[in-house]
């Protein structure tokens, strides 16, 4: 009973209630499904030449396209949903009151984070019927389907935690939203740009040292494996990262791990770090870890 009480989060329940009471929520759901549905059905129409025939190889591409498009939608919506969760409370002048209640900083941050993500997860899981239509044509394994949805969850968790951290650090929602988009965009593009810079640098070094063998460093591919688009392609065995263990000098732990798990581990860790920082920074006064003693003055 006590455990249940500890797990109960009033902030989370309140956010659910507030979010679903506005007109905004059904409009977002409608818009999201309309965009993805139209795109998928149009793609099916063109790929099957108006429904006359289909090739399993092409439906696999359709599945990939739908998955990457949905990933883009997550990257587009999650910063917007999370970047205002704390700064919005601050602007609404409700944060100071919340901070004087018994609710801990951890429960406050987790409540806000989970409430935003649960709405996004609701959107993603509402698209399952679309995947079911595409899945009907074949070309994709059930494991790949599960991995794709697992990938979405991990991506949402990390993008959401970045949004919450930025919302905690920046007072204005507008600025927090812009910075969140910039950071998410930076991660999406920056990891691969950095990977290619490192690869070219190694090549240049090899040329200078007159080494004829191809560059054999795991770092560019490791960076590619944490790029959301390439990591998603990797689930379908496409893209630049496929088998890190092919590196001859790849003795490290990472070389023997499926790049999908690399992605999950890296962003899982980043999620925890972002949330811990948000919890730390939201506390106006951080109590010392010692036993309370009355009359100590």
């Amino acid at each position: 009973m006590n455990v249940l009480r500890r797990l109960r989060n009033p902030v989370l329940f309140n956010e659910w209630k507030l979010r679903m009471r506005t007109n905004r929520a059904p409009w977002i759901i409608l818009f999201y499904l309309l965009v993805l549905g139209t795109m998928t059905l149009l793609a099916i129409f063109f790929m099957t030449n108006g429904g006359s025939y289909y090739k399993p190889g092409e439906t696999r591409e359709l599945f990939m396209m739908l998955s990457i498009f949905q990933l883009g939608m997550i990257g587009f919506l999650v910063p917007g949903l999370t970047a205002g969760v704390i700064s919005g409370e601050r602007e609404r002048q409700t944060l100071s009151i919340l901070l004087t209640t018994n609710i801990s900083a951890t429960r406050l941050i987790l409540g806000k984070w989970l409430a935003s993500l649960s709405f996004m997860m609701f959107l993603v899981f509402a698209t399952i019927p679309l995947y079911a239509i595409v899945f009907l044509y074949g070309g994709v394994s059930p494991l790949q389907l599960i991995k794709v949805f697992g990938f979405y969850v991990v991506t949402m968790l990390v993008v959401g935690s970045i949004g919450v951290l930025i919302s905690t650090l920046i007072k204005r929602t507008g600025i927090a939203t812009v910075v969140s988009y910039a950071v998410v965009f930076g991660v999406a593009i920056g990891t691969s740009v950095l990977a290619e810079i490192i690869r070219q640098f190694i090549r240049y070094q090899n040329r200078m040292n007159q080494v004829t063998s191809p560059p054999n460093s795991i770092w560019p591919d490791l960076l590619h494996s944490i790029n959301p688009v390439f990591a998603m392609l990797n689930i379908f065995e496409e893209g630049p990262v496929q088998d890190l263990s092919s590196f001859t000098n790849a003795q490290s732990f990472w070389a023997n791990v499926d790049p999908f798990w690399n992605y999950c581990l890296f962003y899982g860790g980043l999620t925890v770090v972002c949330l811990l920082l948000a919890i730390y920074f939201i506390q106006p006064v951080r109590g010392r870890k010692r036993k309370a003693s009355a009359g100590e003055q």
Partner: peptide, 28 residues
Amino acid sequence: GYEVTSHPKEVRKLIGYMPDFFGVYDNL
């Protein structure tokens, strides 16, 4: 008896605070 910076949790149980400007959740 509780120092506010070292024992904020204990202090929060003892106080009810109403700031000069405060917001409310309009949809409740």
